[in-house]
C-alpha cells in the first residue's frame, strides 16, 4: 500500500468570475515587430494579453492598432491605463477602453512618479472606487504594501497586482515577504505585475503562492522573445508546481542524504 500523497492538483485561475487558462499574462508593448510579438504570445501560452489606449495616428506614420495582429477570440484583451498620472485621467482611459467593446476588465494604473513609475496610492484607491461603482472589474497595479492591497480589495478590486520591482526594470522579486503577506491576507487573486526579468524571477515569484504573473519587457526585451516566452511558461508552471508541492524546510546545517550506518571500518 502506498503512503504517497496525491500529486498536488491545481485549480484554475478565476478573476472577476472568469476562468483563465494560464497563470501567465503578457503585455504587447515594445516588441521589435508584430510578428515576433504574436509568436511570443503563442509560446507563452498566455490567454490574457494587455493593451494600451492611445490616440489613433491619423498620419499613419506609426504602427497600426494592435487589433490588426491579435485575435480577440483567442486572446483576452486586458486594457490598461498606463501613462495616467491622476485618478481622473485613469478613469477616462478606462471608460474609453471599455467602449472598445471587449470586456469590463481594466488593469488600473495610476502612476505617481516618473522615474520609478511607482503607483500613486491615493489616486489608485480613488479611481478603483469610481470604476467599481461603474461596473468595471478592476485589476489594480499597486506596490507591495499590504494596507493598500487590503483597501483595494475592500473597494471591490477583482485582483490586486503588486509589483515585483519597478516596471521595465527586470530586477526580479525584491520583496518576497511582502508579496507573500499580501497573498496570505487577501481573498481576491494576487497577480504580480512588473519587474520580472528572467525565468528564475518568474519561478521564485510563483513559489510565493501568488495566483499569476503579468510581464511584458522580460519578453519583449529578451534577445529572443519567443524563446524567453517559452522559458517563462515553463518557469511559471514550475514555480506554481513547487508551491503546490510544498518545499522542504530550510536548515542552517547539513543533513546527510545517504545512510550514516553501514560505513566500512
Amino acid at each position: 500500500m502506498t503512503t504517497a500523497v496525491a500529486t498536488a492538483r491545481d485549480v484554475p485561475l478565476v478573476v472577476g468570475g472568469r476562468t483563465f487558462a494560464s497563470r501567465l499574462m503578457v503585455g504587447t508593448g515594445k516588441y521589435r515587430d508584430n510578428e515576433t510579438m504574436v509568436r511570443a504570445i503563442e509560446a507563452s501560452g498566455a490567454e490574457v494579453v494587455t493593451v494600451a489606449v492611445r490616440r489613433v495616428d491619423l498620419d499613419r506614420t506609426k504602427a497600426e492598432g494592435i487589433l490588426h495582429h491579435l485575435d480577440p477570440r483567442k486572446q483576452f484583451l486586458l486594457a490598461n491605463t498606463a501613462g495616467c498620472y491622476t485618478a481622473e485621467e485613469a478613469i477616462r482611459y478606462a471608460r474609453l477602453a471599455r467602449e472598445a467593446g471587449f470586456n469590463d476588465f481594466i488593469k488600473l494604473e495610476v502612476i505617481g512618479d516618473q522615474e520609478t513609475l511607482l503607483p500613486d496610492v491615493q489616486g489608485l484607491l480613488e479611481a478603483t472606487r469610481v470604476l467599481v461603482a461603474e461596473g468595471f472589474k478592476v485589476m489594480a497595479y499597486t506596490n507591495e504594501d499590504l494596507v493598500t492591497a487590503l483597501r483595494l480589495e475592500a473597494l471591490g478590486a477583482v485582483a490586486v497586482m503588486p509589483l515585483a520591482s519597478p516596471i521595465g526594470s527586470g530586477l526580479g522579486l525584491l520583496s518576497p515577504f511582502h508579496v507573500r503577506t499580501i497573498k496570505r491576507r487577501l481573498s481576491v487573486p494576487v497577480i504580480v505585475d512588473a519587474g520580472v526579468g528572467t525565468a528564475s524571477d518568474a519561478c521564485v515569484t510563483m513559489e510565493q503562492g501568488v495566483d499569476g504573473i503579468l510581464m511584458n519587457t522580460a519578453l519583449a526585451a529578451a534577445r529572443d522573445p519567443v524563446a524567453m516566452a517559452h522559458a517563462m511558461r515553463l518557469a511559471v508552471e514550475a514555480g506554481r508546481g513547487a508551491f503546490l508541492a510544498g518545499r522542504m524546510p530550510r536548515r542552517e546545517v547539513a543533513v546527510p542524504s545517504s545512510p550514516a550506518e553501514g560505513m566500512l571500518d
Binding site: G29, V51, A52, R54, R55, V56
Partner: peptide, 9 residues
C-alpha cells in the same frame, strides 16, 4: 479624440 488599442504592458 479617436483612440484605439496599441501595444502596452
Amino acid at each position: 479624440e479617436l483612440v484605439h488599442f496599441v501595444g502596452g504592458g
